[in-house]
Nucleic acid binder design. Structure first.
Length: 260
DNA sequence: ATGTCGTCCGCGGGACGA
């Protein structure tokens, strides 16, 4: 089974590139974030089924699968809002695995109410996940908007006083990982830093000044079956890219059934 | 790093979020 995650920064703006990428990468399951549409575009000719929790101009998460897509859940019990619930979590069963696609709140600045929302959202997510993790193989992937360590940002000095690196954010993420989830880090295809996001501005991608804020967390049974994980920086190149690159994970697990 | 991109509103470019 091959699965992937990608913050596409608008599925409408990214549709040609998404369809090309699906045709070449052919993941069995793809978690998407920041679809930024209410209704997902028609990609039925691609052979993928779609579970989309969309909102309109902001947020929006989806799971695409060509190996089954059942028991879809939009949002999770106890999920905080800002002030209303936002489209940041969608979950489904695909080939015997519980997949969850998340777009964690940005937080804006540590003084902003959005930062408190981010911490509360992550804490509530942990509570919800604790139940799901106990039930079987699970993958939660997406844009966590947290760089787990100082090695996950291109220059820690630049981020002092900013979100994504504060101890409370990192502690909230660690508490999720401590449910027994493994951080499956993609191989960078250039350089030695596994960045997944580069700001559009100032030639940051060209200079490889990025951040690792997109994560794939998996239960032990899945993690033990991983054969490779790659950050597809090719998808960040060229005309009209997202500012995030996909992470592609290969496992020796069967995509035909849940017996792995 | 604040150098870009995407969306909305609404018809041109400003406001906002990331």
């Amino acid at each position: 089974m091959r699965f992937a995650t990608w913050n596409v920064n608008s599925v409408k703006a990214r549709l040609p590139r998404l369809e090309e990428w699906l045709a070449s990468a052919r993941p069995d399951v793809l978690c998407l974030q920041e679809t930024k549409v209410a209704d997902f575009p028609d990609i039925s000719s691609s052979g993928y089924a779609v579970a989309h929790f969309g909102q309109g101009r902001w947020n929006g998460v989806a799971i695409l699968s060509r190996v089954g897509l059942t028991d879809v859940r939009e949002g999770f019990p106890g999920e905080p809002g800002f002030p209303e619930q936002e489209a940041r979590y969608v979950s489904a069963m695909c080939a015997g695995v519980r997949f969850i696609s998340v777009y964690v709140p940005n937080g804006r600045t540590p003084e902003d109410p959005h930062y408190t929302y981010k911490l509360e959202w992550l804490a509530a997510l942990r509570t919800s996940l604790a139940e799901d993790v106990a039930k079987g193989p699970l993958v939660i992937a997406g844009d966590f908007n947290v760089a787990p360590t100082d090695d996950d940002v291109w220059d820690p000095a630049v981020f002092v006083g900013s979100t994504h690196v504060t101890p409370p954010e990192r502690a909230a993420l660690a508490a999720i990982r401590d449910l027994g989830l493994h951080d499956i880090v993609g191989r960078p295809l250039k350089g030695d830093r596994p960045f997944t996001y580069w700001d559009y501005r100032a030639g940051m991608f060209h200079m490889n000044k990025g951040m690792r804020i997109d994560l794939v967390l998996a239960t032990e049974d899945i993690a033990a079956q991983v054969t490779d994980a790659v950050i597809d920086r090719e998808a960040r190149k060229g005309k009209g890219p997202s500012d995030h690159a996909p992470i592609v994970v290969d496992t020796k697990r069967s995509a035909e059934n849940g017996l792995g």
